[in-house]
């Protein structure tokens, strides 16, 4: 991955919008999963996160205005290993997960997005591209701080947080 690969402001807008819409969709899906798994507390957090991504999508869409954004196939984005840096790592997803897990997951995703945009400001790219990338990086970093603040208010999950006395299967 290299900043050089993002050649224009339009391309940056296209990347940012896909990052947000994919992440938003992922949070929606996680909220649905938690709803189905009867974990309303965590579902609510994911729903809130999805709404945040949508708000930022609307903001960036307004910022892009009438600019003609290029169509980029899902696999052609300039992301490390083709993975959206803003999409949460769903590895920890579990039906008994706690708000702590959800917030930590989202904070890490925002940190990763901030780092991604930050790199784009390092190269000797066009000034407006750098400025925009810096703004996107700052927004993600700011949101990460908000999430980390909320996270610090949460009790850390107990060692056996995923222990279920009536598990879906008994593996003996």
């Amino acid at each position: 991955m290299s900043a050089i690969l993002i050649a224009s402001v339009e391309e940056l807008f296209a990347h940012a919008l896909t990052m947000l819409s994919d992440a938003g969709e992922c949070y929606e899906q996680l909220a649905d999963q938690m709803e189905i798994a009867n974990n309303p507390e965590v579902s609510k957090i994911f729903r809130w996160l999805a709404e945040k991504q949508q708000q930022r999508t609307r903001y960036i869409e307004a910022l892009a205005g009438d600019a003609q954004l290029p169509h980029i196939s899902p696999w052609d984005h300039h992301w490390e290993h083709g993975l959206n840096p803003q999409a949460p790592d769903t590895d920890v997803t579990h039906y008994m997960m706690t708000p702590y897990h959800a917030l930590a997951m989202a904070a890490a995703a925002e940190r990763s997005a901030a780092a991604y945009f930050k790199q784009l400001t390092d190269a000797d790219a066009q000034a407006d591209l750098c400025r925009l990338a810096a703004e996107f990086s700052a927004t993600a970093a700011d949101f990460a701080v908000v999430l980390e603040q909320r996270l610090s208010e949460q009790p850390a999950p107990e060692q056996d947080w995923d222990k279920d006395h009536d598990p879906p299967v008994v593996l003996e």
Binding site: Q33, M34, E35, I36, A37, T90, T93, H94, Y95
Partner: peptide
């Protein structure tokens, strides 16, 4: 329709 797969399932 909301899928009924287990949270974390690859099928999502």
């Amino acid at each position: 329709l909301k899928p009924v797969w287990c949270p974390g399932c690859g099928d999502f």
